[in-house]
């Protein structure tokens, strides 16, 4: 049997879901027997390769994320939304009922820590924030979701292990659903 390929990425998220992924501890060896992890946020910046399973953390908050998720959708056989931000925008979506300039001003100009002299960064190399934050499902087709902030390591391992053994996981059936 040829090994499957897994790639992971974080978009508008806090990396907490990836911490939870690392929390599967020694079970990573079970995953490694069945698959190679060919891409993750701590490897170099090559573009997202063809994979069997893409774990995507975080929501779509900027032009860069949009470009990335559209690319990943083409590269991945199975796209899994990992965590509440990817599934339902969660904390990243809390700015959605504000105007973008209010958000920038709150963070860079009016923040207590920056003595009123702050300016909004606008270097061309920086990503451009969208007005609204979207969950993955509003931008691309998502094949599976793991809710939770973060999802438990058990839930992540369960889903990965089932997919790697060509079974379809059911988080509800094994009582591993969790939000927040």
């Amino acid at each position: 049997m040829t090994k499957k390929k897994i790639g992971t990425v974080w978009l508008g998220g806090c990396s907490g879901c990836h911490m939870s992924l690392l929390d599967i501890d020694e079970r990573i060896l079970d995953v490694a027997r069945l698959a190679d992890i060919v891409k993750c946020p701590i490897v170099d910046g090559k573009e997202f390769p063809k994979v069997d399973i893409a774990l995507v953390e975080g929501s779509v908050t900027s032009d860069e994320h949009l470009h990335e998720i559209l690319h990943i959708r083409k590269q991945a056989k199975l796209l899994v939304a990992l965590g509440d931000c990817a599934v339902m925008t969660n904390v990243t979506g809390m700015r959605n009922y504000l105007q973008l300039n209010e958000v920038f001003d709150t963070a860079y100009v009016n923040a207590i820590s920056n003595d009123q002299s702050g300016t909004v960064p606008n270097h061309p190399a920086l990503l451009r924030l969208h007005d609204k934050v979207f969950p993955l499902q509003e931008v691309v087709n998502v094949d599976y979701v793991i809710p939770g902030c973060p999802p438990s390591a058990d839930a992540i391992f369960y889903v990965l292990f089932e997919f790697l053994n060509d079974r379809v996981p059911d988080l509800n059936e094994v009582k591993k659903l969790k939000y927040g």
């Binding site: 979506g93 959605n96 009922y97 509003e138 979701v145 793991i146 988080l171």
Partner: peptide
Amino acid sequence: LQELGYKVGMDHIRYPFLFPEC
């Protein structure tokens, strides 16, 4: 509400969020 979500097996929300200002 959280418990209810688990009971009905809700893993994601199929409707667009309204994000009202509350």
